[in-house]
């Protein structure tokens, strides 16, 4: 396997700083143990796992914002209670979602949900989906 050198740019550093600020976490504390990825119930459907999300943030890779994984997080807090470094990956995911939502770009268009589903879904589902997926 050929080695790839990742350069940490000023822009990347600023991105890391922003995530730290929004989430109240120090993402660089993550030592990539993988516990969060191992216990995440959504990891199966995610394109990268929670620990990989953290790695991308550490390296200032803004492309992480375009991945599906951050939206698939269900805020279940399993990682939160298990991280041996005391980090809260759920807050990191939320910060990343917020960075997109705050630009008035939504992840969910409620019109895509069928009328039948809208009749069925309980209020809590719709309220929380709006809060997580729309800005």
């Amino acid at each position: 396997m050929s080695k790839k050198i990742i350069e940490i740019t000023d822009e990347g550093n600023a991105f890391l700083e922003k995530v730290n600020e929004l989430s109240g976490q120090v993402v660089t504390l993550c030592d990539q143990c993988g516990t969060c990825s191992g216990c995440c119930p959504m990891a199966e459907e995610m394109d990268i796992t929670p620990s990989q999300i953290n790695r991308m943030v550490q390296l200032g890779q803004v492309e992480v914002l375009d991945l599906e994984a951050i939206w698939l997080c269900a805020s279940c807090f399993t990682c939160t209670v298990r991280c041996p470094r005391g980090l809260d990956p759920s807050k990191i995911c939320e910060s990343l979602r917020q960075m997109t939502l705050r630009k008035a770009i939504d992840y969910m268009d409620i019109r895509d949900i069928s009328e039948k589903e809208m009749r069925r879904l309980p209020q809590i589902a719709i309220v929380s989906a709006f809060r997580k997926f729309t800005g």
Partner: peptide, 13 residues
């Protein structure tokens, strides 16, 4: 986790 609010956008999960 049962998938929580993902039921709106990603019911498959």
């Amino acid at each position: 986790c049962c998938g929580s609010y993902q039921t709106v956008r990603n019911p498959k999960t």
